[in-house]
Design a protein around this nucleic acid. Sequence first.
DNA 1: AAATAGTGAATGGCTATTCATTCATTGTAT
DNA 2: ATACAATGAATGAATAGCCATTCACTATTT
Lengths: 199, 199
Amino acid sequence: MKAANKHTKIIHAATKVFAKKGFFNARISDIAKEAKVADGTIYLYFNNKFDILISVFEEEIGALIEQVKKLLSTEDDPRKMIEIFARNHLSVMKKNKYLAEVIQIELRQSAKLIKDYRNNKFSEYVDIISSIIKLGQERSIYRATIRPGIAKRAFFGALDEISRVWTVGISTEYSVEEATQQILEIFLCGILEPDASLI
Amino acid sequence: MKAANKHTKIIHAATKVFAKKGFFNARISDIAKEAKVADGTIYLYFNNKFDILISVFEEEIGALIEQVKKLLSTEDDPRKMIEIFARNHLSVMKKNKYLAEVIQIELRQSAKLIKDYRNNKFSEYVDIISSIIKLGQERSIYRATIRPGIAKRAFFGALDEISRVWTVGISTEYSVEEATQQILEIFLCGILEPDASLI
DNA sequence: AAATAGTGAATGGCTATTCATTCATTGTAT
DNA sequence: ATACAATGAATGAATAGCCATTCACTATTT
């Protein structure tokens, strides 16, 4: 029978192979081997190679959204919420390096790879940041001069670039906690020395 | 004669084609056509397709480094220096969309594309940020608790993600000035309302 | 008339996708 | 209980098309 978990098995295998080789260098036979199925079997579950990539985005990021939304639902303070988002993102990326790689690299070219595919799931994920910022502004906790649409990009971009350290073989290492603390310090307080207006 | 400017012509053509189609979908014949030379001519100036991409990185980012270093050399205040870096980066990326696209997308996969190619030029560029931060720390203008190695990533990642708005066809638009101002507000002061410790 | 630069059609290697066939499971008839 | 279909999942070798690179040839310079 067409086991539902074979679909999932292929998705996970594809995530790994895409991460390691990149979409174009990934061979269908690599994915098949990784998933321990025959090449042809993949076409029983997916229409083509692009379809596999899209499914990886939708399903893996979908799960990420579920997870962070659940965590956020227990918190009300926008400062804590932004912290939860950052810590969760960084720890998932550190733990799931294959997913990290796919988001950082393949997702970015997806618009070019696949005609008329909009990354709705991805936008939905990043928009969580702007909604937290808006909430904070309503409560006068975050500055009204901050534009949520720009700040969400700045925040996500910062998290994304910071987490790249764990995917490529860069020597400098730091922990999720350290990275989270730094990101929060920068975004909440800025990098200026509080009494630097002197000089 | 082996005109030096034919080399440059090919580099610019390649930047454009790589930006539009991505490295793997770019055909040598596309680049040749764009540069108005024969397919074979490209191999008189470059060893192979990868070599073209590497040259694009080295030469285009090399020029970017020259430019920003020159601008920075006239300034001494680390706060202004970080501003100069941000404004310059954003305005170059808004103006030169092909280069922006190549940096944002192709550069990221270069490690995977090309065995043992380290993006020295790119690291050199991003390291300008950490050196500005260190300078600021020495003068007690930037907090000592900020780790320059992490902050440079956060700052560059923020700039990079913000400038993506100009490359992909996203509806929301903002100017270089607006983006620069927001980035500086966030990084220098943070997003917290100054007297938000209330609540 | 050398020497050098440029050309573009032909080659050769590579791989996504297909599809004829096999295999496993379930149902039906004896 | 055993034999026999029927169904549809799984397989993987064969196909068909694509494109980086080469190279025999032409054009241009010195």
